[in-house]
Design a protein around this nucleic acid. Structure first.
Lengths: 159, 159
DNA sequence: TTAGCTGCAAAGAGTTTGCAGCCTG
DNA sequence: CAGGCTGCAAACTCTTTGCAGCTAA
């Protein structure tokens, strides 16, 4: 069972891990990390940078990339590629907190779900295929949604 | 049930589809398409180009990219991103022929599998989540394999 | 004080595009 | 012969890196 941690708690844990690795916490990192956990999931570097610059306008791309890399290395973020060229990132609490995605090919909206039945079945599949240690699973369901404003409905007219 | 089609049959079907769309078949396209179906799955543009140049040394990157794009549009190929930065492509017979992957994070070897039980369960998940039409599913299992020569076993020593 | 960090700009990787000439239908 | 296709190089997008100055511990 994973508990829900407050933003502050996650930031504290991040600081603790930084310290344990001999790394520093800086104003920029704090702003980026706080915004990252405050905002929703599946955020791109560009979206995050834009938000972060409202607080700290002089922060550059490189710092955001480097901070996200740090987060990933310390398991506070999970990178995702949904096929549109950009990497997106999901917050994680530093432990395992897996979920999967439904992605609309028209409007690129993303929904999360998790299904324990599938997870169990997956473990069976891996065991059946050979001598492997499962590191992580990634399941993406690409759909067309029936929402009014989903561009794919008008795709044949425009573009 | 999907039948196994010979390389020639797939090439013929590709030509037929090209014609139906008012497109031309050329020497270069034939070489690229033939090699693509001859070689294994999950091939990258670079690997394919290298192979293709043994037959036709003057073929350039752009032609391979453009031909693969054509194949994808006509459902003769499926693009995959396993997180190492390059897009890989799987041959398909022009109809649906889905399978999923087990990827070793150490040696980047890729294994295929498909599991109907999971597919069925996925349809249930999608239906439960909202009003969607499932376009395709993608399931990737990242593992560490226990093979002798898998570099991850020596990862902590080297690099 | 001294690692480590930042911002900038330049460099890299992978992919796409513009264009003049070529080839297929 | 017309329109699509090719090869080349340049352009583009996303991401990483080198470096001089800055800052947290």
């Amino acid at each position: 069972m994973s508990e829900i941690l407050s933003q502050q708690e996650v930031l504290d844990r991040f600081h603790a891990r930084l310290g344990a690795s001999g790394l520093k916490s800086t104003q920029q990192r704090d702003v980026i990390v706080a915004k990252f956990f405050e905002l929703g999931r599946h955020i791109s570097v560009e979206e995050l940078l834009e938000e972060v610059r409202r607080t700290a306008p002089r922060i550059g791309y490189a710092t955001v990339y480097r901070t996200l890399k740090l987060l990933v290395e310390h398991r506070f973020a999970t990178p995702r590629q949904f096929g549109d060229g950009q990497t997106r990132f999901d917050p994680a609490d530093g432990d395992d907190d897996e979920h999967d995605h439904i992605i609309c090919l028209g409007c690129r909206r993303v929904l999360e779900f998790s299904d324990p039945t599938i997870t169990v079945r997956i473990q069976g599949v891996v065991a059946a295929q050979g001598d492997f240690e499962l590191a992580r699973q990634r399941l993406e369901l690409y759909v067309h949604c029936k929402t009014e404003d989903c561009p794919h409905l008008a795709a044949s007219k425009h573009r």
